[in-house]
Structures are given as C-alpha cells and as structure tokens.
Amino acid sequence: MSLAEETSATSMALKNRNLLLGGALTLVFLGAALISFLWVPYDVTQMDIANKIKGPSAAHWLGTDHYGRDILAMIMVGARTSIAVAVVAVGIGMLVGVPLGLWAAARRGSLLDEVIMRGNDLVFAFPSLVIAVMITAAFGPSATNAIIAIGIFNIPVFARITRSGALTLWSRDFILAARVAGKGAARISFEHILPNVLNLLIVQGTIQFSLGILAEAGLSYVGLGAQPPTPSWGRMLADSQTFISFAPHMALFPGLAILLTVLGLNLMGDGLRDIFDPKLRRGRT
C-alpha cells in the first residue's frame, strides 16, 4: 500500500464505525487478558465457600461462583485461555494453509493442485468438534487438543482463500512481466502474490480468530478444552448450568464476555474489509 493510500486508509479507518467499535471491544478483552498477568481482583485458585454464589456487589463486581471465586477475575484469566487458543489456532492455520494455497495456485490445474484442494475438502468434512472428539478419545482432554483441533480446521480455510486470491493475481499482467523477467513460481509467490493477498488474510484472520474463540468456548463447555483449574469461559458456563434458575449471573457474564469479544473481532474484520476492498469502497461513495 502506498503512502497516499495509507493516509487515506488511516483517515478511512477513523471514520469507519465498525472498525472503531470492534477495535475498542477487542482492546478491552486483550487488555483484560494482559492485565490479568499482573493483577486480578481475587486469586482464582482460592475457594471461598462462605461467599459462594453471590450476586454482583461492591466487593465482587460480577458476583461469585459456586466455589466463591470472583467471576470478574475468572473472566480476566479466562480471556487468556480463549485468546491464546484462538491465536495459536489461527497461527497454525496460516502457517500451513497459506503456503499450501500459494503452492496450489502456482501449479493451478496440476495434479498437485487437485490433491491439495481435495485434501482441503476432506479436512472440511471434519468439523473442529469432531477432530477434538477424536483427539480427546486418543489423548484425553486438554487446551492443547482444542488448539490442534481448531488449528487443523483453519488450515483449509486459509488455503482456499489464499489460492483463490492468488489465482486472480496469477492472471494479471504484472505476474506475466515477472515471469518474463525469469522469476520462478516460488519467488513470484512470495514477492508478488503474498503481499497482494495479505489484505484478504488479515480480514480472514480476524474472522477465524473470532470463530476460534467461539469454538474454544464450545469445546471447554463440553469438557474437551481447557481443564480445571485453568479458568475458561466455556467451562464457567458449563459450571453455571446447574445453578441457572437461581444464580443467572454465573451464566450471564461469561456468556457476555464471549459475545462481546467475538462481536468486536467480527466488526473489526468487517471494517478492515471495507478499507481494504476497493470494490466495496467504490460502492460506498
């Protein structure tokens, strides 16, 4: 992106309400996760049976759970788990998926392309929950399994989007010019294709990040993700279920945390797409 485009993108970013709101929400939860390393209102490993299942109060802003643990502190520490799982899973998806997509596009129409794409379809047939079930059946439940399960599911997502973005680029004249200059497919892929699909990847990355948080919550909820005593949002919701009729706050706040984080990331993704995608940009003016 050029300087001129960059400045216009910056001013557009400031005007883009989706991006601002989404960015703010994301920052809040990212901040909560980071702060939790330094300070939490209460120790989340400490039970306080005397104060169990209390509603929000001055001492416990969001109330306490069935062991008397502070829910705000649990949510802050739980944010770490969610974010860590989602980030690593997106990382796995990108690290494996993007090179595969670039490679498939560079050899479009070949047997290799076919194998990569069919392999992708096959992985798509295993929803991340199913992969998690298989891994758990093998090694027992843990946060690592959740990461691997979500990460594997992310691979074909990134491979596909990279390939389709790369394919449109491969038909452009500037790629032909690079080929005439004698550059090989690998070099062209990294020098010319990758920087031009980066926008797509950033947008997809935010979306997969939010999906990762949802998936982690779901897996923890059914006990296939992070194990106690590691606090996680999904686990908190599972624990709250028994008490839902008389202690709805135990279910409300962790759920809201998930909802707002995912909402923030999605809004940010939409905002970024508006800024990156010139086709949509034209449509708006």
Partner: peptide, 22 residues
Amino acid sequence: TQLGVAIPNFWFAMLMVLVFAI
C-alpha cells in the same frame, strides 16, 4: 445479525431455557 453471529449457541440455549422453560 452481527449479534446473532457472535452469540455462542449453547449460551443462547441456556438463556432460552432460563426464560422460556424456567
């Protein structure tokens, strides 16, 4: 729909149980 996309379905289910069933 942005809210709908972001809501964890099992949490939404729990809230519905609370409202419509309990």
